[in-house]
């Protein structure tokens, strides 16, 4: 357990002066995660907001080695970097201890990058993959992704006279990554910085692949005040819209249980992308969303109980 004071003294890898929007969740996630690396890092990044806003030639915000290749292949590119490291280290040409970390948005992770992510995780590269999930393709102007929540207004699921925003539920990527049987998977939120820090520490410490899924609000896409980003993530956690949990070698532990689970409407009502859900013609949708949040939460608690029972046997 680290204190905020201690964490504030850890040297930054992502320098200030980059061009991410005010209130963007992504750089908060990056800075919080990298504080836990405890060794030099080599960073790979999928095409997206984080990449285009931090590496505008001839400037870079990255104090560490950094590579970007394309949208769908951050995991594959980093696989190559990590393979080079293993090879050169075995040959005695490199002696440094280096950690490998990839960052991608939900577009580069849930969707176009899912194949290369799955491949890299299955092969067992020693790397941490961090998804900053803002729930849509924000870089190209708020188009829906498979991480977009049901009912959200995006530019490819616009609210119209016959459609109430995005139809259908989000893909549960964290569970998909758990199904890969990798040593460490966790969901994190900037609001719970200590929980995040401890999980990032574990992710970097395991030998082999680790996956962290971080909620990372986009004030432009979510349509909330840019000063309220961390508050958004806190609401997401307290409503169990974004539960905090980890799977260590497949054993599930819910790392934060809200003392009083807030109704999901508390999260929805703060954001412009859900405003239409409160109109009379969309009656019943919020109840459906609440039911789905409840179902997923109960399922997660059941998974945790199962893990505890297995440990007790």
């Amino acid at each position: 357990m680290a204190t905020l004071k201690e964490l504030s003294r850890v040297p930054e890898v992502l320098a200030p002066g980059h061009r991410m929007c005010a209130g963007c969740g992504a750089p908060i996630v990056v800075r919080q995660v990298l504080r836990a690396a405890k060794a030099p890092v080599a960073v790979a990044n999928a095409t997206g907001c984080l990449e285009v806003s931090t590496t505008i030639y001839p400037y870079t915000s990255w104090k560490s080695p950094f590579i970007h290749v394309a949208f769908e292949n951050a995991s594959a590119s980093l696989s190559g970097v990590e393979a080079a490291y293993q090879s050169l280290k075995r040959q005695g040409k490199i002696t440094d201890e280096i950690k490998f970390v990839a960052f991608g948005g939900d577009g580069g992770t849930y969707d176009i990058g899912l194949q290369s992510l799955s491949g890299a995780m299955e092969r067992g590269h020693d790397m941490v993959y961090v998804c900053y999930d803002n729930g849509a393709y924000m870089n190209t102007g708020i188009q829906r992704s498979s991480a977009t929540p049901m009912g959200a207004d995006t530019t490819t699921t616009p609210v119209g006279s016959v459609r109430p925003g995005k139809l259908g539920w989000r893909k549960n990527l964290t569970k998909i990554m758990m199904a890969h049987g990798i040593p460490y998977v966790a969901q994190i939120s900037p609001s719970h910085w200590n929980d995040l820090y401890q999980k990032a520490e574990k992710a970097f410490a395991v030998k082999g692949p680790a996956f962290l899924n971080a909620i990372a609000p986009c004030p432009r896409g979510w349509r909330h005040d840019s000063a309220e980003t961390v508050q958004m993530t806190k609401l997401a956690v307290d409503t169990c819209f974004w539960p905090l949990f980890e799977a260590v070698d497949g054993k599930v532990r819910v790392t934060y249980k809200p003392r009083q689970k807030k109704p999901v409407v508390e999260f929805l009502k703060t954001q412009g992308r859900f405003r239409h859900l409160f109109r009379p013609e969309n009656e019943g949708l919020i109840e459906q969303i609440q039911a789905e949040v409840d179902r997923e939460w109960e399922e997660l608690l059941a998974l945790e109980r199962l893990s505890q029972e297995q440990a007790a046997e």
Binding site: S77, G80, V81, S87
Partner: peptide, 28 residues
């Protein structure tokens, strides 16, 4: 051989990993 052999899941990843390795400082 001393090669680290990466059995990628597609040619897109083959080229991406080869490029990553090359930029990392390896003959790839």
């Amino acid at each position: 051989v001393k090669t680290e052999f990466v059995t990628v899941e597609s040619e897109h990843s083959a080229m991406s990993a080869t490029l990553g390795a090359s930029m990392a400082g390896a003959r790839a």
